[in-house]
Nucleic acid binder design. Structure first.
Lengths: 344, 344
DNA sequence: TTGGCATGTTGAAACGTTTTACCTGTTATA
DNA sequence: TATAACAGGTAAAACGTTTCAACATGCCAA
C-alpha cells in the first residue's frame, strides 16, 4: 500500500504539503503544487490510512451500537430500517457504525471498555428502560451518546423518541371518525415507559371526547400474542351494552393476538370489531384483513440521532457545553382494512 | 486517558516491559515485575489504545458488512439473528462488525475504499447473486472475505450457504409421510440461485419417489405475496384429478400469498391444502393456522463464517495459501399446523 | 537600506503502541 | 578461570498521519 511518503516523493514535495492538499487546507499551498500532488495521488493510487489519521487526531470516527438479542418468538419491528438509516446518515457525517453485543458481561462494562480503548467515539442507545443503568453510567462519565428512547424524565441527555401518546391519539381520532365510541386498549404493564405513553394517548383521547373508560376497557399484559388473546377474552366478557367495538393495541404482536382470538370467537375483523396495532411490523400488511397500524418514522429518527451526535461531538471538540436536545416524532397511521364503521 | 507511559512510570519499569506484560509474553518478564505492572495498571485504570495498537500492527480488527436496504413490502427474514450472531462470534475472535451502505455509489468502489484505507481487515458478504461483481472484484484483489451465499460455481472462494435443496427435500419427505402425492412448488424465476437450489430439492424428491410433476405444478414468480396468490390460482385451475394437495414454497412471503388465496377460495389450510414456507420469518408462527416452514441455521452460519475468516486472516498473516472452504448447512423443518393428511 | 508582512514550503514532533536489537548480570560449562 | 548461555530488562525505531514552528523568498512601505 502506498503511503503519503510515496506521494510526496512522486510529486517532489514534502509530506506536509501532501497532507495539506489532501485535507483541503486551501491557503497553505499554491495551485500548481496542488495539481502536482493530485496527479501523483492518482498515478500511484493512494488512499490515506484511516488508522494513522485516527491515531493522530485521537478519534475513531466510529459510533457504537449494541445489538439486542431478540428472542425468536418476539418480532423486532424496528431493527431493519432503523439500522440501515443509522448507517446511512452516519456515513454522510463521516462516521461508521460499529456493532457489538454484551457477551454475557455487564453491559455497562462493555460500553466503558469500548470507550476507554478508543474503539468508538460515541454511542447510539436503543431499547432503553426506565432508569436505564447504561444511560446513568454514560452520563456520569460524560461519554458522548444519544438515545433512541427515553429513560428517566429527570435525567438530562439527548434523546429522540416516537411520540406514542400522539400516535395512539391519532389512532383514536381515526376510530372516532369511523363512529366508534366504545374503544378498549390492550397495553403492556406499567413498568414499560413506552407502554405508559401509549396508554396515555388512549386515556387522553377518551377523556377529551368525554367518553367513559369502563372497567375492563384497559388490559395490561406482556409483549406477546397471548396477551392479545387474553385482552380480547377480557373485552368480550363485558356486557353487550358496553362491549368494545374497537381495540387499540400497544404493539402489532398484541394486535395479532387480539385478531386471532376475535376470529376464533367468530367475529369478523374490520366489521364486528376494529383493531389497530403499533409498529407496522413486516408481514402485517399480508394478514387478512391487512392490519391498520402506526408506523414509527425510523428514518427520521435515525437522521435526528446522527444530527444530535454530530453537534455533540463538534461541541465537545471545541470545548463547549450544550443544553441537551430532545425530540418527539409522531408515528404515521397506516390505514388498512382491519377497521371499519361499528355495527348498527 | 492514561497511556502505557503512565503505567511504566507508575510501576517503575520501561514501557517495553509493560507491553510485554499486557500481551502475555510470558518468558520476557519475571513474576515480580509482572505483579508490579498489573498493580499499576489497575491503580491508574489503564486501557490500551486500540488505534495505536492497530497502527503498529497494521490491522483494524474490523470486519465490514454491507446493509441491504430491504424494501418495506418485503420481509427480510434473515437479518436480525444473523447479525447478532455474526457480531457475537466476531467478538469472541477479537473482532467487531463495521456496517456500511452503498450510498448511491458503485458497491465495488465502496468495498475497495474501505479496504484500501485500512478501515476493515475483511468482509462478510451476503445477498450474493449469480456472477456477483462484488465477489469477482474481491477475488481479483485477493481481499479477505467470506460469503453467506454462493455466486458462480466456477469461482473459488470461501462460502457458507443454506442447503436449499436438502431443505426442500426434507419438507417433501414430511409431506410424503403425511400421505401427499400431488405436490406443487411455488418458486422464483430462474435467475435466482437460491431459487434454483430450492426447486432442485422439489424435482429431486418427486423424481426419487417416482411421482409425476404435472404441467402447472411448478410456478415461477417474484419474491412477493402476489406471486403466491398467482401460484395458487394456477394450481387450483388444474383438473381435480391432479390438483395438488400440498404446496411447497420458495419463501414465507410466497407461502403467505398461497395461504391467503387458498382461504379466499374457501379452502381450509392444513386440511384441504397443506402449505410449507421457507425461512421462518417472525410472525409466521402467529398465523392461523401457524405456518410450517424451514428455518435457516443462522447462528451456525454466522459461526462458520467467522471461523473461516479467522483461518483466512491467520493464514494470510503467515503467508500461507489455503484451499477455499465451502459449507452447506441444512435448514430445520419447523412443523406447525399448516400441513395435514390429504383429504380422502 | 531596512524591516515587516504575506505566501509557500518544509523538517520534525507527536499520537500510543509493538518489537527489534542490545545491554547487564548471573549461572552453568569447559 | 574464561566464556558461553541465559534470564530479565531497556532504548529506540517504526507504524502513517497531522500540524506546529521555522524558514525561505519576494514585495511593499518606511
Amino acid at each position: 500500500m502506498p503511503t503519503i511518503k510515496d506521494v510526496a516523493r512522486e510529486a517532489g514535495v514534502s509530506i506536509a504539503t501532501v497532507s495539506y492538499v489532501l485535507n483541503n487546507k486551501v491557503d497553505a499551498v499554491s495551485e500548481d503544487t496542488r495539481q502536482l500532488v493530485w496527479e501523483a495521488v492518482h498515478r500511484i493510487g493512494y488512499t490515506p490510512n484511516v488508522t494513522a489519521r485516527n491515531l493522530r487526531s485521537s478519534q475513531s470516527r466510529l459510533i457504537g451500537y449494541a445489538w439486542h438479542d431478540t428472542p425468536h418468538e418476539q418480532v423486532n419491528p424496528v431493527l431493519d430500517q432503523f439500522m440501515y438509516s443509522l448507517a446511512h446518515f452516519a456515513e454522510t457525517a463521516g462516521y461508521h457504525i460499529l456493532t457489538f453485543t454484551y457477551a454475557q458481561q455487564d453491559p455497562v462494562h462493555v460500553y466503558d471498555d469500548l470507550m476507554r480503548s478508543g474503539r468508538v467515539d460515541a454511542f447510539v442507545m436503543s431499547g432503553t428502560v426506565m432508569d436505564d443503568p447504561r444511560i446513568q453510567y454514560l452520563m456520569e462519565r460524560t461519554t458522548p451518546f444519544v438515545s433512541f428512547g427515553r429513560s428517566n424524565p429527570d435525567w438530562q441527555f439527548d434523546w429522540v423518541d416516537t411520540d406514542g401518546t400522539a400516535g395512539i391519539r391519532r389512532a383514536m381520532d381515526y376510530l372516532f371518525t369511523l363512529g366508534h365510541r366504545r374503544i378498549a386498549f390492550a397495553g403492556w404493564d406499567d413498568a414499560s415507559l413506552a407502554g405508559k405513553h401509549r396508554l396515555q394517548g388512549y386515556t387522553d383521547a377518551m377523556e377529551t371526547t368525554h367518553l367513559p373508560i369502563h372497567d375492563g376497557y384497559i388490559y395490561h399484559g406482556t409483549q406477546s400474542e397471548q396477551a392479545g388473546i387474553d385482552a380480547m377474552t377480557q373485552f368480550q366478557s363485558l356486557p353487550a351494552s358496553i362491549r368494545p367495538t374497537a381495540v387499540v393495541c400497544v404493539s402489532d404482536l398484541v394486535a395479532i393476538g387480539v385478531k386471532n382470538e376475535a376470529e376464533r370467537l367468530g367475529l369478523d375483523v374490520g366489521k364486528d370489531v376494529s383493531i389497530i396495532g403499533f409498529d407496522d411490523a413486516p408481514m402485517l400488511q399480508y394478514l387478512r384483513p391487512p392490519m391498520t397500524t402506526l408506523r414509527q418514522p425510523l428514518r427520521e429518527i435515525a437522521r435526528t440521532l446522527i444530527e444530535m451526535l454530530e453537534a455533540k461531538l463538534g461541541d465537545s471538540a471545541s470545548g463547549g457545553k450544550r443544553v441537551p436536545r430532545t425530540r418527539l416524532l409522531t408515528p404515521e397511521l397506516i390505514v388498512r382494512e382491519s377497521c371499519g364503521r361499528p355495527r348498527g
